[in-house]
Design a binder for these strands. Structure first.
Lengths: 191, 191
DNA sequence: CCTACCGATCGGTAGG
DNA sequence: CCTACCGATCGGTAGG
């Protein structure tokens, strides 16, 4: 991807995140880019192309993060803390993409939609496995791992709705707070 | 609201939840209702009218629930358990509306949007107050109540994304699991 | 990246 | 609730 394409993609995303993919027209995007609507098509194949680049771009980052965590860390608590930290970092560093990715992936169609939900399932499975590891290690309560994984991901993903880059919490602090909260819900009380 | 209007609204919602408000056309809705697009306008003033009825219908239910909880219950743990239970019940009993309400409220415009976000803030404030009550009572950790309220609401709201009415978890079980999880994150370890 | 343009579809109205 | 219809806007293409 050329620098110019990256630039145009980033600007497009900043427009799309405002009203959402479906409610944003190609003309809205072109206007913000100060070009004619038709010119957009020399960069993108279609409107959905922008959505695909956005959603799969994010999915790839998350995929990489969980692989890294599984390669390096050994116990479940470390793994969970680390994957939450990376997840929060990815979200906060790519806020526009993240908002589109989380809110609008459902607008993908056909095989793109299938591929995306498959990737999402793999990522969620990664979380379930970490929870399962913690149960096996005897440090997490014997909980419903599916439920736990969904609850973890929902609280983590929701930060895109309220995170402000110039607010009083940075990514690291958010990750710490979330990890502490989540781990207190998972860990056995070692008294 | 007449029974016929309620019926038409419910059917419209079942269509809107599929692709989302912005990506669903008036013609899509009319087709599912087996009527002409123009006929919809004898029931609704506009497409957005349907969205408004949906979002404010849900907001009213949540408003009522938290009032009830604050009227009846005294301590923070009881209150939190109860409001989570009612919240989950409202979501699961009105799944179509809930999905639209959570995903598509941003498509409201003008004063509707303002009124809605105001109502949402009041509800979130209710959660913050319950957390604060728990801190004052000395049973919750002295936590960031804003952060806590957002984390609670996100994990609760996310259930609309995976809840299946004929699945193996009913509303009560979900509420119990969530409450236990959330309270373990909030409560001081009384050892 | 632009000019010029396309057919399709959009939300909605008039009048019955 | 329907017929008939509207202007506006949609995503996108041809050709340069």
């Amino acid at each position: 991807m050329t620098d110019r394409k990256k630039e145009i993609l980033a600007l497009s995303q900043s427009v799309l995140k405002e009203k959402g993919y479906a409610a944003t027209s190609v003309r809205d995007i072109a206007k913000a880019l100060e070009m004619e609507p038709a010119s957009l098509y020399s960069h993108f194949k279609s409107k959905e192309d922008i959505l695909q680049l956005t959603c799969f771009g994010m999915a790839d980052k998350f995929e990489l993060a969980i692989k890294e965590v599984n390669d390096i860390y050994f116990n479940a608590e470390e793994k969970l803390r680390m994957v939450i930290k990376l997840h929060v970092e990815i979200l906060t560093r790519n806020l526009d993409s993240s908002l589109i990715f989380i809110r609008d992936w459902r607008n993908l169609t056909g095989t793109s939609l299938e591929k995306f939900t498959a990737k999402r399932n793999v990522y969620e499975e990664g979380f379930r496995e970490i929870v399962q590891t913690g149960i096996n290690e005897g440090i997490f309560n014997d909980t419903d791992k599916k439920f736990a994984a969904l609850t973890i991901l929902s609280s983590v993903n929701w930060i895109v709705e309220w995170y402000q880059p110039d607010g009083n919490l940075d990514a690291k602090q958010i990750a710490d707070k979330l990890s502490t909260f989540i781990l207190s819900g998972l860990k056995k009380q070692t008294v």
